[in-house]
Design a protein around this nucleic acid. Structure first.
Lengths: 220, 220, 220, 220
DNA sequence: GATGAATGAGGATTCATTCAT
DNA sequence: TATGAATGAATCCTCATTCAT
């Protein structure tokens, strides 16, 4: 339970002061997480310095450490929060009813909310980029997210191509995810029309990639 | 001949001295670049320290700075050389005659040597990857490497689709590069049949992505 | 191949520069160890800061870390050097011929050089004080020194009181060492006549403590 | 009753309020001192952090500073109270009537309760020990504790050897205290028969050390 | 050219102490 | 009065870079 640093004091009653203090603490935590999100976005996790985060949050380094034991904890907390929201987003993206849609609409239904989420939470993406470096924070979360997404994609694929070999499904899912990720980089790196163009391009790639598999399967 | 610790420097007259000195310098540079390649591979660009590179090269940090003004320059030079070798040694990839080939063969002709090169020179990949923070400005060496590749891809694309809007070409090139990168991750992460499967999959993706553009263009 | 980077270069020959460089390094190490000795003496190991040591040595913190990987290593090196000298001193203190002497002279013969050594190397004592704190540096050295001394003292005692029970010898040796240590604190904390007085007092204590045991044994 | 973390404060009317407040304050102080004793024991004085003490006491750091101006004050107060208790509770040690006893009985009378007290209050010992850097100025609380004890010992000595030079008395007192401290280390480090043996040994040392002075003095 | 010592700013983290509530 | 957030200097240590030899 983040935000409640060390105490277990205020549970009920009309004690307003502790509540207010706790509220302040929670505000600080939020403030620090927002600052961390910004810094992680700009510099990546590894290059982000706790002092920079504290500065961005407008507090002293000591304050940061009152709420987080170390740099990794910040990333974990931030990543966790984002992950939770990401899961919600993914949950609504992979809604069963979407699977009924024809491929183009399915791609819209799945990709749009996920892209939107990442556009609104660019820190999420920044945090999920520390995969290659061993020992980096977020590795576990990253893998969980990745394999979670992989499972979902495989599920959808399986529904669309029930007769495909599992190994092929895995390959394809990995490819899809890879394409999605690299496109997301491009999407996040641009704005406005450019961004829209890359979103369209991503959908084109996936549509053309998947169409043959799907059509082949469901046409007879 | 004081100062040269490990002898065999002056063997004959002085006619060959400048050449030998230059040769030695080039050997040093090669030595340093090889060391940098190793270190970049193992730790990534950001985490690689100049001292570590010098140590790996078996020279002192001072020596390193005699040949490169800073860390970035090493990456730039290494990337440049790798890129050059990607072309000269293996990559008859973008050879003009390849452009005559139909798309599937073209993809083979271009991708196979590039993939092979990357499998043999993982440092190249490490450099293209490292610290590529999406929203942030890529560090210069990446920029150069990346835009170099981009230019080539755009060139090929332009040859194939001469009437396409430049903006579209740029988008498509970025997408191609992104797809290529993410697939290369998968390719390098596997071996044998799995690797071959991902290579095939990459070609499938690109073929299906590009076929409509190309066909549209060259059919009349 | 000129430019052999890492060490063992200057074995002979007329290469003066590396020798001079190496000499400078050794001077720095000695300088740093001397500074560390001073700081350890004044503040104790735990409270000694590496920056303070570097400042005392007149160098930057980075320089310190060029020669020692961390604070503990400084203490270990310093302690090791002092320990070596201490062992030599102890060796000459516990010379076999001293055991022939009557107790008062024996005490002089044993204690005087050891006290002198500690007066000349107060850092030794400061370093050997980190026993109580677990996890502190020098613990092992401290224990080795302590048990080494204990063995020697027990040896001497055994010579003097051959019929005493081993357990008693152990108790007595521990007491002797304890008395010695606490007196050494007093001795080192004073100078001149005061110091001499405490030295005399230590001898008095030990003489009176040990005389009955010894006399009882050797008088008949 | 807001703000009071561990309830049962306000039970009746307001007549007793100031007293109760004072009582609460004393309870807090006792609580804090007990916590400090525990922390000092476990980590030593220097390594003990005020936050750790407050945490151990179950209060916030701010509260701690409401009763003590700084860390040192805690040690001083704790040492003082322990010293007081060493006297009032156990230590009829330095009772005037004890001074009438012959030396062996006097040593028993003085040492036994003091030893017992130290066995029961290891914090006292931790305080007397901690960071006692020989050459450096002892931190003030140690100074006070130490000199308090010293004064008492000197008092006893003076009674026994009224004609001795003050300087000698000081030396002897220091030695006695040193011997006592180092023996206490051994005593506390052992149990049962071993402990008893070291207690006996301590008495032997002091008896033999002091007997000549005393006898010389009181014989005519 | 080569060396390796030297630099010093910066990074993460801690902790005695203060302050608003 | 109690709280716990806030402070900021200090800690150990790293690393890109420079300098004397």
């Amino acid at each position: 339970m983040p935000g409640t640093p060390r105490g277990k004091t205020t549970e009920s009653g009309e004690t307003g002061a502790p509540r207010r203090r706790q509220a302040r603490g929670e505000r600080r935590v939020a403030q620090l997480l927002a600052a961390a999100a910004g810094v992680f976005c700009r510099t990546g996790y590894a290059a982000a310095s706790t002092n920079a985060i504290a500065r961005e949050a407008g507090v002293s380094p000591g304050t940061l450490y009152q709420f987080f034991p170390n740099k990794e904890a910040i990333a974990i907390e931030l990543g966790g929060q984002l992950l939770k929201r990401a899961h919600e987003t993914h949950g609504q993206a992979f809604l069963p009813e979407n699977l009924e849609l024809p491929l183009p609409e399915l791609l819209d239904a799945v990709l749009d909310p996920v892209i939107a989420f990442n556009c609104e939470n660019p820190a999420f993406w920044a945090l999920m980029h520390g995969s290659g470096i061993p020992g980096a924070a977020m590795t576990q979360e990253h893998e969980e997210l990745h394999s979670g997404l992989l499972t979902r994609v495989e599920g959808v694929l399986h529904t669309f191509c029930p007769q495909a070999a599992p190994a092929d499904l895995t390959h394809t899912s990995h490819m899809i995810l890879g394409i999605f990720k690299s496109s997301l980089d491009l999407i996040l790196a641009h704005e406005g029309a450019e961004r829209a163009a890359y979103i369209a391009e991503l959908k084109t790639v996936l549509l053309r990639y998947l169409e043959p598999m799907v059509t082949t399967t469901s046409s007879p």
